[in-house]
Simulated assay, not measured.
Amino acid sequence: MQKALVLGASGATGRLLVKSLLDKGVEVKAVVRKAESIANIEDSSNLLKIVEAEISAMPDEELAYLLSGCTSVFSCLGHNVSFKGIYGHPRRLVTDAVAKVARAVELSPSDQKIKMVLMNTTGNSNRDIPEKPPFSQRMAIALLRLILPPHVDNEQAADVLRLQVGQSHNKLEWVIVRPDGLIDEEQVSEYDIHTSPIRNPIFDAGQTSRINVADFMSELSLDSGLWSEWKGQMPVIYNRVQA
């Protein structure tokens, strides 16, 4: 049986990811600050284990223990949309969590590779290709780096995987999923995956439903062909535009 660890499991997308994994028969360890924030998720198969913990305060050894037996780890961590959430601490919430996962994987005595799927944003360019955003977007992103710490956190979290873990780590493989403008929908719909953004995420953003992001992230961990296609990359996901 597949086993997964989900960080940020109580967030708007994290909850949908947990549900998607459970529906597909995956045993899930969901890390949340308060157990009641996710306790009402339907779990008819008793596959959900709720772990009440603060990831930023968790020792590497404790995270390594949680990762024991897991085939995949997901991060849907993000900053609350409030003044404190945006400008308060921890400003490197996502970056520090991703780095902690990388260290914890190294502590594992198992040689089995773990797949990590990180939820990110189309505002973060893939500098491995490299992408060439239009001038207007580059200027807007430069401004965001100055005034929005969460954007810098997203960029640096991706850089941990791109630059520190890299493409040939002996224990950790990764995919960074970049949704465009997030919306809420009740059902999974058709969606398209691209290597790079096909729209300007600042001035001409598309739409991506959170439930589609959750479906794609869960499928990445379960479909070996899909994983091979996107391993070590930063795919962009959009809702399919109906003609």
Rank of each mutant, 00 (worst) to 15 (best):
E190A: 14
A157D: 02
V94Y: 03
V117H: 06
G88W: 06
L148D: 08
E155K: 12
E155G: 10
D192E: 14
H151Y: 15
V160H: 01
R92I: 06
L163G: 00
W174E: 02
V177I: 03
L163R: 12
Q137M: 15
V94C: 07
P197Q: 14
N154W: 04
V101C: 02
Q137G: 07
Y87M: 13
A142F: 14
A99Q: 14
I183G: 00
R162H: 04
K100H: 10
S125A: 15
V188C: 09
M139R: 11
W174F: 08
W174M: 05
N154A: 12
L148T: 10
T95Y: 05
R145K: 15
S196K: 07
I183S: 08
G123I: 04
V160D: 05
V105I: 11
Y87I: 05
T121W: 02
L143Y: 13
V175A: 02
P179L: 02
Y191W: 08
I176F: 03
V177L: 06
G88Y: 07
P109C: 12
S189E: 13
L77F: 09
S136T: 13
V105Q: 05
D159P: 00
R127F: 06
T195L: 14
A97F: 07
V98G: 04
L118M: 09
D111G: 14
G123D: 04
K100E: 09
P197T: 14
L146T: 12
S82Y: 03
L172E: 06
T95V: 13
D180W: 04
Y87S: 06
Y87D: 07
A99P: 03
I176H: 03
G123N: 06
I86T: 10
L161E: 05
P130W: 13
R162A: 11
P133R: 08
K115N: 14
I193M: 13
D184V: 09
L172Y: 04
R127S: 10
E131N: 11
K84W: 09
D184R: 01
E186L: 09
Y191V: 09
V94W: 04
L107N: 08
H89D: 13
N124G: 01
M119I: 11
Q187L: 09
N126P: 01
N124H: 01
N154I: 03
W174C: 02
L172Q: 06
V98W: 03
Q156Y: 11
P134H: 09
